[in-house]
Design a protein around this nucleic acid. Sequence first.
DNA 1: CTCATCATGTAAGGAGTTACATGATTGG
DNA 2: CCAATCATGTAACTCCTTACATGATGAG
Lengths: 196, 196
Amino acid sequence: MSLRYALLALLRVGPLSGYDLQKQFSLSVGHLWHAPGSQIYPELRRMEAEGVVLGEEQARGEKGMRRIYHVTPEGERLYHEWMRSPLDYLRVRDPAHLRAAYLETADPEDARRFLRGHIEEWQAELAQWEAEIARIDAGESPMLLRRLSVTPEAEREATIAYKRFAYEGMVERARTEIAWARRGLDLVDRLAAGRG
Amino acid sequence: MSLRYALLALLRVGPLSGYDLQKQFSLSVGHLWHAPGSQIYPELRRMEAEGVVLGEEQARGEKGMRRIYHVTPEGERLYHEWMRSPLDYLRVRDPAHLRAAYLETADPEDARRFLRGHIEEWQAELAQWEAEIARIDAGESPMLLRRLSVTPEAEREATIAYKRFAYEGMVERARTEIAWARRGLDLVDRLAAGRG
DNA sequence: CTCATCATGTAAGGAGTTACATGATTGG
DNA sequence: CCAATCATGTAACTCCTTACATGATGAG
């Protein structure tokens, strides 16, 4: 149910269309929460039906139309309720570690391929998150700048600090995954050598 | 689609009923992959319809019945195909880090509550995974013993090593999450102090 | 006889995926 | 005029969740 709150978090900064939101998701927030257009548009409509956002029809050229969504007071209330409420954690369901637990049933070469893939996957994510941290530090994150433009001076430090903090967490997770998979590669070698 | 492979991994060791599988999931494998009965039973039926397992009807008492599932050669093939194929990683969708990125919009006390909850959540998981590692080391893991009982001597070391390796990864992830949230608590304090 | 546990499900719905559909506008 | 991109979706499907349904068996 977090998609709704991710949308509210973005819209609270200022009104946006579904299309704009889609872009935000594919850039900044998308590195914490992925959402495709096919999920965003219907969710916005549902949110509008429930009164948490208000869609404003805007003409664009002759016949073009776009719908700009604003957060309503009810949406504001809902957002803060979410912020105050405990998060519900999903039950663990981890395909990589599941496979790792049964790696003795694979060829050593397949085991290595799997672990290398794991490293590559997390390195790609790591690069994204590190890049976002670099943008935050350089004052170049579009999402953060948009946020800061409506943030009173007294809260800017916290806004920047928490955003950085969130991405740091992702960076640390990625590094942990990479270190683990590297140890896995050593393990495959050691076991393969042992049976030569 | 990993549920199917988790089921195959368990059934390859020896035939089990849906009920037995459910128990395995709530114990050992369940710490890597959660699955409730309402998902297991239908999936077994689908797998049987597709010929990857075979259900053997067994009488139990006067009218009681249970269905014991065996992996077929096709199931064996499918399992190894999975082991050889690259994993598909899910797009990131992390409610905790999403919330962390917007923590300046919460009360400091709510922020702390959230972070403490994060620590508790991961500490609970950590305890499970550490307990499983302790059982592996003590030779008391029921799942591992079941596996070893059908594993030739030459592969026992690898079987144990990979199982431990998988759980180590989960332990490291939990420790990373806990360390991150603790830093978050410090950050909340620092920011709250800064604004008195 | 009764309670825990064995045993197997169904039903309704939420959340997310992939693929497709449709058309408008703007810049070169 | 043509391509990129702006703009908004639908449809079908998978996976998973919660809640409920039903009955048998075995231990005390």
